[in-house]
Simulated scan of single mutants.
Amino acid sequence: MMGRIDNQMQLLILDLDSMIPENHLLRQIKNSVNFDFIYEKASSFYSHTGRKSIDPVVMIKMLLIGYLYGIKSERRLEEEVSLNLAYRWFCELDLMQKIPDHSTFSQNRRRRFRDNTLFRDIFNEIIMQCINMGIVSGNTVVGDGSFLPGNVSVNSSIEVIETVQQSSIHYLDELEKEMSEIPGYKEPITKEVTKRTLKSTTDPDCGYINQKRKRGLGYLTEMTVDTGHGIITGVNCYPANHRESDIILNHVKQQQEALPIDIKVLALDGGYDVGAVHRGLE
Rank of each mutant, 00 (worst) to 15 (best):
I54L: 07
I189D: 07
R279S: 07
N210A: 07
Q8A: 14
K199I: 09
Q255W: 04
C130G: 00
L12W: 11
G270E: 12
V277W: 02
G50S: 00
M96Q: 12
G270T: 14
Y39W: 06
D205K: 15
I135T: 08
D269W: 08
R196G: 10
R279Y: 05
I38R: 09
V81N: 03
E125W: 09
P260I: 06
K30A: 06
M19K: 10
A267F: 13
Y208R: 07
D36F: 03
D226R: 11
G70M: 03
K52M: 09
L118H: 04
A240P: 10
D17K: 01
R120P: 00
I248M: 14
C130V: 01
G228L: 15
L281K: 01
N210I: 02
D205R: 13
T197S: 13
V265Y: 15
L85R: 06
A267H: 12
I247H: 02
Y208S: 00
A276E: 13
R279L: 05
G3Y: 14
R243W: 13
I5E: 10
V164A: 05
V154F: 09
K52G: 06
T227Y: 08
V154I: 10
R75N: 10
K199R: 15
D203E: 03
N241H: 11
M96N: 15
Y46C: 02
P204L: 04
N132A: 08
I247W: 00
M9Q: 14
Q8M: 13
T197K: 15
H278C: 06
N139Q: 11
K199S: 08
V154K: 13
V141Y: 08
V57G: 05
D36C: 07
S167F: 01
R75E: 12
V33F: 12
N34E: 15
A240K: 01
V164G: 01
G50H: 05
I247E: 05
E176H: 10
E222F: 00
Q129W: 06
H242E: 09
S32P: 03
K264F: 08
V58D: 04
G216A: 03
M96D: 14
Q97D: 14
L63Y: 01
M128A: 07
T117D: 13
Y219Q: 10
Y219A: 06
L249Q: 06
S180Y: 15
Y208F: 04
G134S: 07
L220M: 03
T233V: 12
C130Q: 03
K186Y: 06
G150P: 01
L14S: 04
V225L: 14
V58I: 12
V141H: 14
I71C: 03
K61H: 06
G143D: 08
R76H: 12
S53G: 13
K41N: 09
L25F: 04
C237R: 13
L63K: 05
Q10Y: 12
L64I: 06
N155G: 03
Y185P: 04
F37V: 03
D203W: 00
D115Y: 01
D246E: 12
R4T: 14
Y272I: 09
Y67M: 12
G234S: 07
G184N: 05
V164S: 01
L268H: 11
Y272N: 04
Q97F: 07
G275D: 11
T227A: 14
L268T: 09
S167M: 00
P204D: 04
R279G: 05
I29K: 03
L220Q: 03
